[in-house]
Design a protein around this nucleic acid. Sequence first.
DNA 1: TGTACATCAGTGAACGCGCGTTCACTGATGTAC
DNA 2: TGTACATCAGTGAACGCGCGTTCACTGATGTAC
Lengths: 210, 210
Amino acid sequence: MPRLVDAMSASKPYHHGDLRRALLDAAERVLERDGAGALSLRAVAREAGVSAAAPYHHFKDKDDLLAAVARAGFEKMTDYMRKAALAAPDARARLNAIGVAYVCYARDNPAIYHLMYDKGRQRDMRAGPRTEENSAYNLVIQSMVDMGVDEPNPIDLELAQIAGWCAAHGLAEMAGAKEFDRLKAILGGDEAFFSAVLSHLGMYRQPPPK
Amino acid sequence: MPRLVDAMSASKPYHHGDLRRALLDAAERVLERDGAGALSLRAVAREAGVSAAAPYHHFKDKDDLLAAVARAGFEKMTDYMRKAALAAPDARARLNAIGVAYVCYARDNPAIYHLMYDKGRQRDMRAGPRTEENSAYNLVIQSMVDMGVDEPNPIDLELAQIAGWCAAHGLAEMAGAKEFDRLKAILGGDEAFFSAVLSHLGMYRQPPPK
DNA sequence: TGTACATCAGTGAACGCGCGTTCACTGATGTAC
DNA sequence: TGTACATCAGTGAACGCGCGTTCACTGATGTAC
């Protein structure tokens, strides 16, 4: 089977193999290395080592590629979260682990996280299924329910969920800020810090006494 | 004084009057109407009704204009917050009012808020004074201190502050999301909803029993 | 008050650039006989 | 196994566009005498 060998060993293979995958990877690299402002279709093609027209055989247009990058990001992030959830001994630890995994993903891929959030926001405007994001979201909500967050009524439960979601998103966007470096060092690492911040959400505590 | 009259009544005045101010206003309008992607120097000049070269008499370059827009945003937001703080009867109400004002500003000016956050983040990368943002930030921190948030040690106090800041930012970015419409209606308005979400932060509650 | 002149805030044309996208093309791959 | 051919995944040149920025200019304003 000479063709397979050629394909695997030659530096410039026959066609490409899997340009679609290569373009998504290239887009992630450009995004994290050069920032969102530098993310053009041409830059992605350049990064992948193909002509500017090549991506059009795999994506309808620029927005289609960006949407695919965001989708891949959600999948990877959901994986992070699911793995973290599986390792936890009880519901409370699970909720915490999921939150930390969420924030860690954003710390490691800040530009992609930003793009994901933007795409999600755009999709909000139209109606739509949002299956990928929902699977991350549901993971959190389900853990809260499992944990039996101590809220007097369903409205408060929903508010607690929203507060948790907002804090996680805010922390995710600031995850890499150098203002946090001192506390991270004191607490013994990024994850300990994220965990500590999230533990200051109301759902981990008693409702006010009065 | 014929000149003053001319200046005030003519549709195309002598020079302009205050083009700098007009450009900042135009930029805000373009930003909120057409989105961040459409915010070019030329678009701003067009919106203000002047030539593409005119802004260069008032701003060094595009980034200088954007930075000025962000600065103006911080000033307006700080005003919002200060006014809200003054009307509050005690420290707890003050903290809540400040948070709600913060989120309301973001709801009313989502694109500007986003720009402000981006510019602040960029400034984080370099070192710098950040006087405008700090004045908003300090307003929150001071209220927390005044309120005597019940935390066992300074580390926990700082963590509580960070959690509050993250939740406020997250809620600010999602303030206009239509997912919240139902709860907003139930609770009797945007501000009641924002207030309710923020009240689910840990600092309003007792630390965990164990 | 009137005149001469420096300064200031605009204009409009032009520059080079990178972009998204299209198109006719080429050469490798997979398939039918 | 060999040949003919349709299909697929690339190329490279070209398009029109809006952008940031520069430049020589113009005309109104403010100032000195």
